[in-house]
């Protein structure tokens, strides 16, 4: 895992006032000046390593997922992320046999976390020595799940999609089910989502974030917020320990896809500025591309970043 820079540095002091180079999709957190106050204790790494892996063959012709390819992608990405000699070594660094591991999934009907990915993560956690009774996969029930209640480690996995309240359904957004009233975080396009991550019960527990980019959704349509017209076969995963950096990379891909599809640079409505706010306001991680070391694995064609 990357080390956390918990001591404010000159760079971290300057960055709050620096000009942002992110695209328009993220947008500045509304009501926040560029001299936003960083959180008192920064969890932001000096730099964030993020792995983007693509394997087109993970999606079969009929759109179903090849579980073996998906698991291989996950393992290759995790090994690369931690610069470990093998995926097994990487997982053993992520979780210890004594850990209690909650795998936070997402069950949204139209684009859920693939069951094959849930199973792959669970299998690797078990292979790292964690006892089966100490591993659980959950989404809506995390607040009542006894394994999550005593979890010492969390692994966060969900698909990227556009979202009516937060602009994008991100790994940051995926923890909204840990609070009793998710709607309390809907104001200002969910700009305060990172506040959830800084709650004592959650802060520092997340060992890995997996943003699923197999068939990302780049636009929202109708009451059910979904149309296959606005998804595409990307065949990717974005993996990292810094959730902000993972989401920032995913957001840039969505932005690129929207530019290509609509041709008019239309911004997300609402903007996904919770990603930037997680950096500037809550000092949770790096949203600035200049602070992200992006490792690209797989075909570069149409990688969009």
């Amino acid at each position: 895992m990357s080390s956390h820079d918990r001591t404010p540095t000159r760079r971290t002091m300057l960055r709050a006032g620096s000009a942002w180079v992110l695209g328009s999709l993220l947008g500045p957190p509304r009501g926040e000046t560029k001299a936003a106050q960083p959180a008192s204790r920064s969890l932001r790494p000096a730099r964030s390593r993020v792995v983007l892996i693509r394997r087109p063959e993970v999606l079969r012709g009929d759109g179903s997922i090849d579980p073996a390819v998906l698991r291989a992608m996950l393992n290759e990405a995790v090994a690369s992320l931690l610069e470990a000699p093998s995926s097994a070594a990487a997982w053993q660094r992520l979780v210890k046999p004594a850990d209690v591991v909650g795998i936070k999934s997402n069950v949204w009907r139209s684009l859920p976390t693939p069951a094959a990915l849930e199973q792959a993560v669970r299998s690797e956690v078990l292979a790292a020595g964690v006892m089966p009774a100490n591993v659980a996969v959950d989404d809506r029930g995390v607040r009542d799940n006894p394994v999550f209640a005593r979890a010492t480690a969390l692994i966060n996995a969900r698909p990227m999609r556009t979202h009516a309240w937060s602009g994008l359904g991100t790994c940051l957004k995926n923890y909204i089910m840990f609070v009793p009233r998710p709607a309390d975080y809907h104001d200002d396009a969910c700009a305060r989502l990172a506040e959830i991550w800084r709650q004592p019960a959650l802060e520092g527990k997340t060992r890995l974030n997996v943003l699923v980019m197999l068939t990302p959704q780049f636009h929202t349509l109708g009451p059910h917020s979904y149309s296959p017209e606005y998804t595409w076969r990307y065949g990717g995963l974005i993996v990292g320990t810094d959730v902000v950096a993972v989401d920032a990379v995913g957001a840039r891909i969505i932005e690129a896809r929207r530019r290509a599809h609509f041709g008019d640079g239309r911004p997300l409505n609402p903007p996904a500025h919770h990603i930037r706010a997680a950096d500037t306001r809550f000092a949770l991680g790096n949203a600035d591309p200049a602070a992200i070391d992006l490792v690209r694995l797989g075909p570069r064609a149409e990688m969009l970043i």
Binding site: L221, P223, S227
Partner: peptide, 22 residues
């Protein structure tokens, strides 16, 4: 647009949406 019809009439809002290939 793209397989989705939305309209309103009286105090009803109606959506008809295709959830497959539009």
């Amino acid at each position: 647009r793209h397989g989705w019809l939305s309209f309103w009439t009286d105090r009803y809002f109606v959506s008809v949406v295709a959830q497959g290939d539009p």
